[in-house]
Structure formats: structure tokens, C-alpha cells
């Protein structure tokens, strides 16, 4: 059962109403995840602004979406994997691109390196080794693009965590499960600060 309310766009008050209309214009529908975010207009606005800014990322929308798919698998967010798979074709991803994102394995060397790096960031909460950083650089990623991979992971975590908290009901077909290489680790693991 869903654990947070979904705001009904028909009965929403401003500023949530207008933000939900923006979503409708952008996607043609108002996914349930946006209705959950609308519990706090500031949150929905922050998400839309962050997503819009990332639309200009140099890594391009294909890799941006593949990183989000990969993050969603690692964070075990069914809703996120399903909705990202559903909207990915409109962002130019083929079925193979989607599968590569979800499994973290791509035949394209550059994409594969980015997905490996992305998994390392999630697993270590950013504390990647020097070697992992060298690997992604050797695959041709600039400092700016590395920053963008991190930002894509975070955008993924944003929706993953929220939909996991809300247990958001699927309003789109559930994506068929795939075998993933990594185990969930976004919030676990040893670290110590004194």
C-alpha cells in the first residue's frame, strides 16, 4: 500500500497545481511520482529544476538515463526502473540501451566504463579509488562529465529514495526484472569520521 499521499491535480492548490500542469505539458501525463512529490511544492519544484538543468549535461540524455536506470536497480526502486524504462524511448534509448543501463553492462566501451564508475560511486558513496577515477578518464570522460555522472546518480537517488519511502503505486507497466551485477549498497558500508 502506498505510504504517502498522491496529490490530485484536479483539486491541488497553488503552487502545486501549476507545477503539476508543467509536468503534464512536459510528459503528456502526470506520473504518480510527481503527485507524491507535490505533497511539498518545494520538492516538486526542486526536482523539476534539477532535471531541467541536467538536460544540458554534456554526457547527453542517453547516458544520463542509463545512469539513472542503473542507480534505480541498485537502490531496488521498482517504480523508478519501470517509469524510466517507459519514458526512455522518448529520450532516444533503444531496448538494448535500457537493458545496458539496468544491468550495468554495455557493449559500448565508453558506456560500460561510465556505468562501472557509476556503480563504484554508489557502492562507496563517492569514495572511489584513484584507479577507478583513472579508468573512467581513460574511457574519455572529462572532469565535467564525471561531475555529471555523479549528478545523474544523485537525481536517480532522489526519486529512488522518495518512491521507496512512499511505496509509490505503479501507474505504468512494471518493468520485467533483470539480473543485475551489483548488490544494493547506497546507504551501507563502513566509514568513520572523527
Amino acid at each position: 500500500m502506498q505510504r504517502l499521499n498522491s496529490v490530485n491535480p484536479e483539486t491541488a492548490t497553488e503552487p502545486a497545481k501549476e507545477l503539476l500542469q508543467t509536468v503534464q505539458q512536459a510528459f503528456g501525463v502526470i506520473p504518480n511520482t510527481a503527485r507524491v512529490m507535490a505533497n511539498s511544492p518545494a520538492v516538486l519544484e526542486s526536482f523539476l529544476a534539477f532535471s531541467t538543468a541536467m538536460g544540458k549535461a554534456r554526457i547527453g540524455s542517453k547516458l544520463h538515463n542509463q545512469v539513472k536506470l542503473n542507480t534505480s536497480e541498485t537502490n531496488a526502486c521498482d517504480y523508478c526502473t519501470s517509469i524510466l524504462s517507459a519514458i526512455a524511448p522518448s529520450a532516444g534509448l533503444s531496448a538494448d540501451d535500457i537493458l545496458a543501463g539496468r544491468t550495468g553492462q554495455s557493449e559500448d566501451h565508453r558506456t560500460n566504463a561510465a556505468l562501472k564508475f557509476s556503480e563504484a560511486v554508489l557502492e562507496s558513496r563517492g569514495k572511489v579509488t584513484g584507479e577507478q577515477l583513472v579508468d573512467v578518464r581513460n574511457a574519455g570522460f572529462s572532469d565535467g562529465e564525471i561531475v555529471e555522472i555523479v549528478a545523474s546518480i544523485v537525481l536517480g537517488c532522489f526519486t529512488n529514495f522518495l518512491n521507496n519511502v512512499a511505496n509509490t503505486e505503479l501507474d505504468i507497466p512494471r518493468a520485467k526484472p533483470v539480473e543485475v551485477r551489483s548488490t544494493p549498497t547506497c546507504g551501507t558500508g563502513a566509514c568513520s569520521v572523527h
Partner: peptide
């Protein structure tokens, strides 16, 4: 290093401050 990511971070932070 990435204006898009910096913009994303600042927009996220700015909206949440409201």
C-alpha cells in the same frame, strides 16, 4: 567543471530553501 551539474545543484538547493 560542469555548468549543468552546478546549475542542478544550486537549483535543487534554492528550491528546497523555499
Amino acid at each position: 567543471n560542469s555548468p549543468a551539474a552546478l546549475d542542478g545543484y544550486l537549483s535543487l538547493s534554492g528550491a528546497l530553501s523555499q
